[in-house]
Amino acid sequence: MFIKFLIAAVFAGTPLLFGTVGEIMNERAGHLNLGVEGMMAMGACAGFMAGFFYDSISIALLAAFLAGMLGALIYAVLTITFMANQNVTGLTLAIFGVGISNFAGEFMLVNSASNSLKLPEQITAQISNINIPGLSTIPVLGPLFFQYNIFVYLGVLIAITCGIYYSRTKTGLNVRAIGENPGAADAAGIKVTKLKYINVLMGGGICGIGGAYCSMIINGGVWMNNPVNGQGWIAVALVIFASWKPFRAIFGSFIFGAFNILKYYFPKTIITIPNAFYDMLPFVITALVLVVTSIRKSKENQQPASCGVNYFREER
Protein backbone atom coordinates (compact mmCIF):
# COMPACT_ATOMS: atom_id res chain seq x y z
CA MET A 1 0.00 0.00 0.00
CA PHE A 2 2.72 2.48 0.97
CA ILE A 3 4.71 1.75 -2.18
CA LYS A 4 1.55 2.31 -4.21
CA PHE A 5 1.07 5.59 -2.42
CA LEU A 6 4.60 6.72 -3.26
CA ILE A 7 4.15 5.75 -6.89
CA ALA A 8 0.87 7.62 -7.08
CA ALA A 9 2.58 10.62 -5.49
CA VAL A 10 5.20 10.63 -8.23
CA PHE A 11 2.48 10.54 -10.88
CA ALA A 12 0.54 13.32 -9.21
CA GLY A 13 3.66 15.39 -8.72
CA THR A 14 4.91 15.22 -12.28
CA PRO A 15 2.87 18.13 -13.72
CA LEU A 16 4.00 20.19 -10.75
CA LEU A 17 7.59 19.28 -11.54
CA PHE A 18 7.31 20.62 -15.09
CA GLY A 19 5.59 23.77 -13.91
CA THR A 20 8.11 24.36 -11.14
CA VAL A 21 11.17 23.85 -13.31
CA GLY A 22 9.65 26.07 -15.99
CA GLU A 23 9.01 28.83 -13.48
CA ILE A 24 12.51 28.44 -12.01
CA MET A 25 13.88 29.14 -15.48
CA ASN A 26 11.78 32.29 -15.64
CA GLU A 27 12.70 33.54 -12.20
CA ARG A 28 16.38 32.75 -12.56
CA ALA A 29 16.38 35.10 -15.53
CA GLY A 30 14.73 37.75 -13.37
CA HIS A 31 11.16 37.30 -14.55
CA LEU A 32 8.45 36.48 -12.09
CA ASN A 33 5.99 34.85 -14.45
CA LEU A 34 2.65 34.26 -12.76
CA GLY A 35 1.29 32.86 -16.01
CA VAL A 36 2.35 29.26 -15.37
CA GLU A 37 -1.28 28.19 -15.09
CA GLY A 38 -1.99 29.76 -18.47
CA MET A 39 1.06 28.32 -20.20
CA MET A 40 0.27 24.89 -18.81
CA ALA A 41 -3.32 25.22 -19.99
CA MET A 42 -2.16 26.14 -23.48
CA GLY A 43 0.19 23.19 -23.49
CA ALA A 44 -2.58 20.94 -22.19
CA CYS A 45 -4.86 21.87 -25.03
CA ALA A 46 -2.25 21.78 -27.80
CA GLY A 47 -0.72 18.54 -26.55
CA PHE A 48 -4.07 16.81 -26.32
CA MET A 49 -5.26 17.97 -29.71
CA ALA A 50 -1.99 17.04 -31.41
CA GLY A 51 -2.13 13.64 -29.78
CA PHE A 52 -5.76 13.28 -30.82
CA PHE A 53 -5.09 14.05 -34.45
CA TYR A 54 -1.62 12.68 -35.06
CA ASP A 55 -1.48 9.64 -32.79
CA SER A 56 2.07 10.44 -31.91
CA ILE A 57 3.47 11.20 -28.50
CA SER A 58 6.43 13.07 -29.91
CA ILE A 59 4.19 15.37 -31.92
CA ALA A 60 1.97 15.86 -28.87
CA LEU A 61 4.96 16.76 -26.73
CA LEU A 62 6.29 19.11 -29.36
CA ALA A 63 2.91 20.79 -29.73
CA ALA A 64 2.58 21.19 -25.97
CA PHE A 65 6.09 22.60 -25.77
CA LEU A 66 5.44 25.08 -28.57
CA ALA A 67 2.10 26.15 -27.11
CA GLY A 68 3.66 26.80 -23.71
CA MET A 69 6.40 28.68 -25.47
CA LEU A 70 3.86 30.77 -27.35
CA GLY A 71 2.31 31.83 -24.05
CA ALA A 72 5.78 32.63 -22.74
CA LEU A 73 6.51 34.58 -25.90
CA ILE A 74 3.61 36.94 -25.22
CA TYR A 75 4.91 37.40 -21.70
CA ALA A 76 8.50 37.82 -22.86
CA VAL A 77 7.72 40.43 -25.49
CA LEU A 78 5.64 42.43 -23.04
CA THR A 79 7.98 42.28 -20.07
CA ILE A 80 11.43 42.06 -21.67
CA THR A 81 11.01 44.29 -24.70
CA PHE A 82 8.07 46.48 -23.68
CA MET A 83 8.99 46.48 -19.98
CA ALA A 84 5.40 45.96 -18.82
CA ASN A 85 4.57 45.18 -15.21
CA GLN A 86 5.49 41.54 -14.64
CA ASN A 87 2.80 40.81 -12.08
CA VAL A 88 -0.06 42.02 -14.21
CA THR A 89 1.28 40.52 -17.42
CA GLY A 90 1.67 37.14 -15.75
CA LEU A 91 -1.81 37.24 -14.26
CA THR A 92 -3.30 38.18 -17.60
CA LEU A 93 -1.43 35.36 -19.25
CA ALA A 94 -2.91 32.97 -16.71
CA ILE A 95 -6.44 34.14 -17.44
CA PHE A 96 -5.87 34.30 -21.18
CA GLY A 97 -4.18 30.89 -21.36
CA VAL A 98 -6.91 29.13 -19.42
CA GLY A 99 -9.53 30.96 -21.48
CA ILE A 100 -8.08 30.10 -24.85
CA SER A 101 -7.43 26.52 -23.84
CA ASN A 102 -11.01 25.99 -22.72
CA PHE A 103 -12.32 27.90 -25.70
CA ALA A 104 -10.39 25.73 -28.13
CA GLY A 105 -11.38 22.61 -26.21
CA GLU A 106 -15.05 23.44 -26.45
CA PHE A 107 -14.64 24.44 -30.08
CA MET A 108 -13.26 20.99 -30.84
CA LEU A 109 -15.92 19.30 -28.73
CA VAL A 110 -18.75 21.02 -30.55
CA ASN A 111 -17.24 20.14 -33.90
CA SER A 112 -16.52 16.54 -32.96
CA ALA A 113 -18.74 13.72 -34.10
CA SER A 114 -19.62 12.17 -30.77
CA ASN A 115 -19.49 15.32 -28.63
CA SER A 116 -16.60 13.90 -26.71
CA LEU A 117 -12.88 13.79 -27.29
CA LYS A 118 -10.94 10.71 -26.33
CA LEU A 119 -7.35 10.01 -27.20
CA PRO A 120 -6.99 7.10 -29.63
CA GLU A 121 -5.66 3.77 -28.38
CA GLN A 122 -2.48 4.16 -30.32
CA ILE A 123 -1.34 7.14 -28.33
CA THR A 124 -2.57 5.96 -24.95
CA ALA A 125 -0.31 2.98 -25.50
CA GLN A 126 2.61 5.33 -25.99
CA ILE A 127 1.96 7.21 -22.80
CA SER A 128 1.22 4.19 -20.65
CA ASN A 129 3.80 3.05 -18.17
CA ILE A 130 7.05 1.71 -19.46
CA ASN A 131 8.65 -1.29 -17.88
CA ILE A 132 12.36 -0.81 -18.13
CA PRO A 133 13.71 -4.25 -18.92
CA GLY A 134 15.88 -5.76 -16.24
CA LEU A 135 15.22 -3.00 -13.75
CA SER A 136 11.46 -2.90 -13.42
CA THR A 137 11.30 -6.42 -12.06
CA ILE A 138 13.47 -5.73 -9.03
CA PRO A 139 11.23 -6.01 -5.98
CA VAL A 140 10.18 -2.68 -4.40
CA LEU A 141 12.78 -0.64 -6.30
CA GLY A 142 11.45 -1.80 -9.66
CA PRO A 143 7.94 -0.45 -9.30
CA LEU A 144 9.19 2.54 -7.33
CA PHE A 145 11.68 3.75 -9.89
CA PHE A 146 11.37 1.96 -13.20
CA GLN A 147 7.71 1.62 -14.13
CA TYR A 148 6.57 5.14 -14.94
CA ASN A 149 5.37 6.70 -18.15
CA ILE A 150 7.56 8.77 -20.42
CA PHE A 151 6.47 12.08 -18.88
CA VAL A 152 7.86 11.20 -15.48
CA TYR A 153 11.27 10.31 -16.82
CA LEU A 154 11.27 13.34 -19.07
CA GLY A 155 10.39 15.60 -16.16
CA VAL A 156 13.16 14.28 -13.95
CA LEU A 157 15.60 14.44 -16.83
CA ILE A 158 14.71 18.06 -17.57
CA ALA A 159 15.02 18.99 -13.90
CA ILE A 160 18.45 17.38 -13.63
CA THR A 161 19.64 18.97 -16.86
CA CYS A 162 18.38 22.29 -15.65
CA GLY A 163 20.13 21.85 -12.31
CA ILE A 164 23.43 21.12 -14.04
CA TYR A 165 22.85 24.07 -16.34
CA TYR A 166 22.69 26.51 -13.46
CA SER A 167 25.38 25.05 -11.27
CA ARG A 168 27.96 23.77 -13.73
CA THR A 169 27.91 25.75 -16.95
CA LYS A 170 29.10 29.20 -17.89
CA THR A 171 25.80 30.09 -19.53
CA GLY A 172 24.01 29.03 -16.38
CA LEU A 173 26.28 31.30 -14.35
CA ASN A 174 25.49 34.11 -16.77
CA VAL A 175 21.76 33.56 -16.39
CA ARG A 176 22.04 33.58 -12.62
CA ALA A 177 23.96 36.85 -12.87
CA ILE A 178 21.15 38.33 -14.97
CA GLY A 179 18.59 37.30 -12.40
CA GLU A 180 20.62 38.88 -9.63
CA ASN A 181 21.85 42.02 -11.30
CA PRO A 182 21.16 42.52 -14.99
CA GLY A 183 23.18 45.73 -15.02
CA ALA A 184 26.27 43.89 -13.83
CA ALA A 185 25.66 41.08 -16.30
CA ASP A 186 25.24 43.53 -19.14
CA ALA A 187 28.42 45.39 -18.24
CA ALA A 188 30.25 42.07 -18.18
CA GLY A 189 29.30 41.55 -21.81
CA ILE A 190 26.50 39.06 -21.31
CA LYS A 191 23.70 39.30 -23.85
CA VAL A 192 20.99 40.02 -21.33
CA THR A 193 17.98 40.32 -23.63
CA LYS A 194 18.83 37.25 -25.66
CA LEU A 195 19.42 35.05 -22.62
CA LYS A 196 16.27 36.33 -20.94
CA TYR A 197 14.22 35.43 -23.99
CA ILE A 198 15.78 31.99 -24.26
CA ASN A 199 15.18 31.16 -20.62
CA VAL A 200 11.66 32.53 -20.43
CA LEU A 201 10.68 30.73 -23.64
CA MET A 202 12.26 27.44 -22.63
CA GLY A 203 10.60 27.71 -19.23
CA GLY A 204 7.25 28.29 -20.91
CA GLY A 205 7.77 25.27 -23.14
CA ILE A 206 8.50 23.08 -20.15
CA CYS A 207 5.35 24.34 -18.44
CA GLY A 208 3.46 23.41 -21.61
CA ILE A 209 4.60 19.79 -21.37
CA GLY A 210 3.41 19.73 -17.77
CA GLY A 211 0.03 20.87 -19.04
CA ALA A 212 -0.06 18.06 -21.58
CA TYR A 213 0.43 15.63 -18.74
CA CYS A 214 -2.68 17.02 -17.06
CA SER A 215 -4.88 16.70 -20.13
CA MET A 216 -3.51 13.43 -21.49
CA ILE A 217 -2.85 11.36 -18.38
CA ILE A 218 -4.78 12.66 -15.38
CA ASN A 219 -8.19 12.70 -17.06
CA GLY A 220 -7.65 9.27 -18.57
CA GLY A 221 -7.33 10.51 -22.12
CA VAL A 222 -10.68 12.32 -22.22
CA TRP A 223 -10.77 16.08 -22.78
CA MET A 224 -12.30 18.06 -19.95
CA ASN A 225 -12.30 21.77 -19.37
CA ASN A 226 -9.72 23.18 -16.95
CA PRO A 227 -7.39 20.20 -17.12
CA VAL A 228 -4.65 22.03 -15.21
CA ASN A 229 -6.99 23.08 -12.42
CA GLY A 230 -4.71 25.20 -10.26
CA GLN A 231 -1.57 23.06 -10.53
CA GLY A 232 0.21 25.95 -12.22
CA TRP A 233 -0.35 28.18 -9.24
CA ILE A 234 0.98 25.57 -6.86
CA ALA A 235 4.02 25.28 -9.11
CA VAL A 236 4.72 29.00 -8.72
CA ALA A 237 4.63 28.55 -4.96
CA LEU A 238 6.73 25.39 -5.17
CA VAL A 239 9.55 27.44 -6.67
CA ILE A 240 9.91 29.11 -3.29
CA PHE A 241 9.74 25.73 -1.55
CA ALA A 242 12.50 24.49 -3.88
CA SER A 243 14.49 27.67 -3.20
CA TRP A 244 15.03 28.18 -6.94
CA LYS A 245 16.93 24.93 -7.31
CA PRO A 246 15.77 22.40 -9.93
CA PHE A 247 17.06 19.43 -7.92
CA ARG A 248 14.98 20.39 -4.95
CA ALA A 249 12.02 20.90 -7.27
CA ILE A 250 12.01 17.15 -7.94
CA PHE A 251 11.44 16.28 -4.31
CA GLY A 252 9.17 19.23 -3.70
CA SER A 253 6.89 18.24 -6.54
CA PHE A 254 6.63 14.65 -5.42
CA ILE A 255 5.91 15.69 -1.85
CA PHE A 256 3.12 17.94 -3.09
CA GLY A 257 1.95 15.18 -5.38
CA ALA A 258 1.56 13.07 -2.26
CA PHE A 259 -0.68 15.72 -0.68
CA ASN A 260 -2.80 15.73 -3.81
CA ILE A 261 -3.61 12.03 -3.64
CA LEU A 262 -3.59 11.56 0.10
CA LYS A 263 -7.37 11.22 0.23
CA TYR A 264 -7.30 7.98 -1.74
CA TYR A 265 -4.63 6.37 0.40
CA PHE A 266 -5.18 7.65 3.89
CA PRO A 267 -6.59 4.73 5.88
CA LYS A 268 -10.24 5.53 6.47
CA THR A 269 -10.24 3.29 9.51
CA ILE A 270 -8.22 5.73 11.57
CA ILE A 271 -10.21 8.87 11.00
CA THR A 272 -12.68 10.05 8.36
CA ILE A 273 -12.07 13.49 7.06
CA PRO A 274 -14.36 15.09 4.48
CA ASN A 275 -12.88 15.02 0.99
CA ALA A 276 -13.00 18.80 0.77
CA PHE A 277 -10.29 19.04 3.43
CA TYR A 278 -8.03 16.68 1.53
CA ASP A 279 -8.55 18.82 -1.57
CA MET A 280 -7.71 21.87 0.46
CA LEU A 281 -4.51 20.37 1.84
CA PRO A 282 -2.01 21.22 -0.91
CA PHE A 283 -3.15 24.83 -0.86
CA VAL A 284 -2.99 25.06 2.93
CA ILE A 285 0.48 23.52 2.93
CA THR A 286 1.60 25.92 0.21
CA ALA A 287 0.33 28.86 2.23
CA LEU A 288 2.20 27.54 5.26
CA VAL A 289 5.36 27.11 3.20
CA LEU A 290 5.06 30.73 2.07
CA VAL A 291 4.77 31.92 5.64
CA VAL A 292 7.59 29.74 6.97
CA THR A 293 10.04 30.68 4.22
CA SER A 294 9.26 34.35 4.74
CA ILE A 295 9.88 34.07 8.48
CA ARG A 296 13.30 32.52 8.21
CA LYS A 297 15.18 34.44 5.60
CA SER A 298 18.61 33.31 4.49
CA LYS A 299 20.97 35.26 2.33
CA GLU A 300 21.72 32.59 -0.25
CA ASN A 301 18.40 30.85 -0.75
CA GLN A 302 16.49 33.90 -1.81
CA GLN A 303 14.57 34.88 -4.87
CA PRO A 304 16.95 36.26 -7.53
CA ALA A 305 17.38 39.89 -6.57
CA SER A 306 16.14 41.46 -9.80
CA CYS A 307 13.11 39.19 -10.08
CA GLY A 308 10.05 41.27 -10.88
CA VAL A 309 12.05 44.30 -11.98
CA ASN A 310 12.51 44.96 -15.67
CA TYR A 311 15.86 45.97 -17.06
CA PHE A 312 16.51 48.92 -19.31
CA ARG A 313 20.15 49.45 -20.17
CA GLU A 314 19.95 53.21 -20.63
CA GLU A 315 18.10 53.78 -17.37
CA ARG A 316 19.57 56.73 -15.50
Binding site: L78, F82, T92, F96, G97, I100, F103, E106, F107, V110
Partner: peptide, 20 residues
Amino acid sequence: GLSTYFASVLQGIILFFILG
Protein backbone atom coordinates in the same frame (compact mmCIF):
# COMPACT_ATOMS: atom_id res chain seq x y z
CA GLY B 1 -21.86 27.53 -30.71
CA LEU B 2 -18.67 29.31 -29.72
CA SER B 3 -17.68 29.01 -26.08
CA THR B 4 -18.22 31.91 -23.68
CA TYR B 5 -14.54 31.56 -22.85
CA PHE B 6 -14.15 33.87 -25.83
CA ALA B 7 -14.82 36.70 -23.38
CA SER B 8 -11.75 35.93 -21.28
CA VAL B 9 -9.65 35.44 -24.40
CA LEU B 10 -10.63 38.86 -25.70
CA GLN B 11 -10.20 40.45 -22.27
CA GLY B 12 -6.71 39.01 -22.12
CA ILE B 13 -5.87 40.30 -25.58
CA ILE B 14 -7.10 43.79 -24.72
CA LEU B 15 -4.99 43.96 -21.58
CA PHE B 16 -1.96 42.58 -23.41
CA PHE B 17 -2.20 45.39 -25.91
CA ILE B 18 -2.77 48.05 -23.26
CA LEU B 19 0.21 46.75 -21.26
CA GLY B 20 2.33 46.84 -24.37
